[in-house]
Design a protein around this nucleic acid. Structure first.
Length: 105
DNA sequence: GGGCTGACGTGGC
DNA sequence: CGCCACGCCAGCC
């Protein structure tokens, strides 16, 4: 289901965002902007980030979501080790080389 | 309604 | 590659 609501909001996007994030393969990553676009709402990367902030990393690989520069999320210190543990090697500056790991649909 | 915030994106330097 | 200014927009006072 895509774009069921007429107006973007954390509530209307959450389910779809979760759905997409759950499908990111191990060893791959997606960006906030790409996820927003896949939901049918460009320019709403920030809203996706907002959703991820309160997301349960329990059954949701939110560590596979980074920004368009490959930068990791602040305040989510486990992200680095989680990525490394599934084969995503970061650059010396701590960023994900999107050229190699971005999940192309 | 108004102003500020921020797990963002893009372009410029 | 890094830093910065701008544009963006829902959420929260």
């Amino acid at each position: 289901m895509v774009n069921a609501a007429a107006q973007p909001s954390e509530a209307t996007l959450r389910a779809e965002v979760y759905d997409i994030v759950r499908q990111i393969p191990c060893g791959r990553v997606l960006t906030y902007g790409r996820i927003a676009a896949l939901c049918g709402w460009p320019n709403h990367a920030r809203l996706v980030g907002r959703i991820m902030r309160g997301a349960p990393d329990a059954d949701l690989p939110c560590h596979r979501v980074v920004n368009a520069s490959g930068r990791l999320a602040p305040h989510y210190l486990e992200q680095t080790s989680l990525l490394e543990s599934e084969g995503v090697h970061l650059t010396p500056s701590g960023k994900v080389p999107l050229k190699e790991y971005l999940w192309n649909l």
